[in-house]
Design a protein around this nucleic acid. Structure first.
Length: 324
DNA sequence: AATAGACCTGAGTA
DNA sequence: ATACTCAGGTCTA
């Protein structure tokens, strides 16, 4: 029976530059949920082996952090959370730059979305699950993965919370094809084999050390290294570069960005049915040139703006129009 | 080198 | 009710 250890504090991030709703529930991480206990709204979830409850205030974000009691040593949770939310990044300044360079951008800047600094293994597995899939189902797959292979942190607000499994947790005595079979049985579909095989590869390449190397490499090289893994194409590689390897110029081109580019940025692509590799590069480069060294962050703003869950409520007829 | 089709699953539409 | 489409794509023929 593990008992969680709790620590509270706050980090300096004004509401004006951090919308937790979009940042945490907008398809970057799949492990956060919103808890409404009337006047208060909290965002709860696990990141960095810690269960967090975040309460946005006007001038800061208050947190409760919980870790399993077998966790060694003291942890500086304030520093941990600041890094996770990239509190040092001056979003106001960048939004100004993006709006200046991009006429369309104003239309999409709603609430301030932040790019999270996530852990590579979680990021890789989650986005291997993301292919041809939707956020809701991805979340439930990830939830299953954590409760099956992760370690329990504690019981909060009516449910057990688990850390994201390590490479060891996932392999632990299992062969590649055993893990494949288990994931298949858990409805991971054709992604099961990709995940099982990629984990084997990652282990061979050096695990966490390999991730460190990818961080230090130039973006283009890290990207090329990632697409060598089975089940990872350029889109997922770009998500990983952006979200957990600190390559903020990486622009993942998914179906939302593709449609948005067709409609607002590159009208000559309007007749294109799907994203070929050539078109992928064209769109990515367009946004990189337009938005500069943090183009991936700007992409996240556009992506969130296009998510149905974050769109202003429209009349059904208008909603239909928007779809096309 | 470039392009269709297949691919697991499940929620939403027609 | 039953089929079809779509979702943060990738791989292969």
């Amino acid at each position: 029976m593990t008992k969680a250890i709790k620590s509270s504090g706050k980090i300096c991030l004004k509401a004006k530059v951090c919308d937790l709703e979009r940042t945490l529930l907008g398809g970057q991480s799949f492990r956060w949920r919103k808890l409404c206990s009337e006047p208060e709204v909290k965002y709860c979830g696990v990141a960095l082996n810690t269960y967090w409850e975040l309460t946005p205030e006007k001038d800061h974000i208050a947190y409760d952090a919980h870790v399993a009691d077998n966790t060694a040593a003291k942890i500086n949770f304030t520093a941990l959370l600041s890094d996770y939310l990239r509190a040092d990044f001056d979003l106001e300044l960048q939004q100004k730059n993006w709006m200046q360079a991009d006429e369309n951008f104003k239309k999409f800047v709603g609430q301030p979305v932040r790019i999270l600094a996530q852990e590579p293994l979680e990021n890789i597995i989650c986005f291997m699950c993301s292919q041809n899939n939707n956020i809701k189902r991805i979340s439930s797959m990830v939830q299953w993965l954590c409760s099956t292979y992760g370690n329990k942190i504690g019981h909060f607000n009516g449910q057990d919370e688990f850390s994201f499994p390590t490479l060891k947790d996932l392999q632990g005595g299992r062969t590649c094809s055993q893990l494949d079979a288990e994931l298949r049985a858990a409805k991971f579909g054709y992604r099961a084999k990709f995940i099982a095989r990629s984990l084997t590869e990652i282990e061979k390449l050096g695990g966490l050390d390999w991730f460190e190397q990818l961080r230090r490499m130039p973006y283009a090289e890290a990207r090329e290294a990632l697409v060598q893994l089975p089940g990872i194409g350029y889109k997922v590689a770009d998500c990983i570069c952006l979200m957990s390897l600190n390559h903020l110029q990486s622009v993942p081109v998914d179906t939302h960005i593709f449609k948005l580019a067709q409609r607002h940025y590159l009208p000559h692509l309007a007749s294109q049915k799907s994203v070929t590799s050539k078109i992928y590069e064209e769109i990515a480069q367009h946004f990189q040139q337009l938005h500069g060294q943090y183009a991936g962050w700007a992409q996240a703003v556009l992506f969130c703006a296009d998510l149905p869950q974050f769109q202003p409520k429209l009349e059904p007829s208008a909603a239909k129009k928007r779809k096309k």
